[in-house]
Amino acid sequence: MQKRLSVLALAAALTLAASAVSAEPPAVYAHVKLASAAGAPAKPLEIGGLVWTCAGDACSGATRGDPAGWSPMYFCKHVAAKLGPLAAWSFRQHEMSAGDLATCNTAAAGAAPTAAK
């Protein structure tokens, strides 16, 4: 009987721990400053496996998972393709250099769908 109570107590503890983990706020992995706030979405948008939210020209990308292995340039060009040119990019607290940011914006402009004539 005592062993059964111990198993039930352990199961209850694991259930509480799992619910506490799922209640954690999403981890923010990236921040961008848009060259123009005109491209900022009004509601959260998923790009590159992150959920992006914007306030004016400042946006952040967050997830509950771990996007380990995703390169900052991958995120940058996909975000810039959806939101427009970026003035600044930070991924996991590392700022992108001006040269890399220019490369990102150029790659995004080449990847963006063209309007029908």
Rank of each mutant, 00 (worst) to 15 (best):
P41Y: 06
K33G: 05
L34M: 06
L83T: 05
G49M: 06
L50A: 10
A62W: 00
S19H: 04
P41N: 07
T53F: 04
T63W: 12
A68M: 08
L34I: 13
P25D: 11
Y74G: 02
A68T: 14
A35S: 13
E46V: 14
S19Y: 06
L14E: 02
D57H: 11
A38W: 00
P25G: 05
L86D: 02
I47V: 15
V51E: 14
L16T: 02
K82M: 10
W52T: 10
K43F: 11
A13E: 01
W89A: 11
P41G: 08
H94V: 15
K33D: 13
H31A: 07
G48F: 08
P85A: 15
S36P: 05
F91H: 13
V28L: 05
S60L: 10
A30F: 03
V32A: 15
T15G: 12
V79E: 08
A81K: 14
A81G: 01
G84W: 07
A35F: 10
A58S: 15
I47Y: 12
A38T: 07
E46N: 12
Y29V: 08
A68D: 14
P44C: 06
S71I: 03
G48K: 09
L10Q: 00
L86N: 07
V79R: 06
S36H: 14
P44A: 10
G84Y: 07
K82F: 04
W89R: 01
A11T: 14
A58Q: 15
R64D: 03
A11I: 09
A37N: 02
L10M: 11
A80R: 04
S71P: 00
A58P: 02
V51F: 03
A42W: 02
T63Y: 04
A80L: 10
C76N: 02
V79G: 08
L83D: 07
P67R: 08
G49Y: 05
L45S: 12
P72R: 13
L45Y: 08
S19W: 08
A80T: 11
A17E: 00
H78R: 15
L83R: 06
E95M: 14
A12Y: 00
A42T: 14
L16N: 00
G61R: 13
K77P: 01
H31Q: 13
S36V: 03
D57F: 05
H78S: 09
E46F: 07
L83P: 06
D66H: 13
D66R: 09
A18R: 03
K33Y: 03
L10K: 03
G39T: 10
A20R: 02
H31N: 10
K77C: 10
L50S: 10
L45I: 04
G49E: 12
Q93A: 12
A40N: 06
C54K: 05
L86C: 08
W89T: 02
F91C: 04
G56W: 11
D57W: 00
K33L: 15
V79A: 12
H78K: 14
G49S: 12
G39C: 09
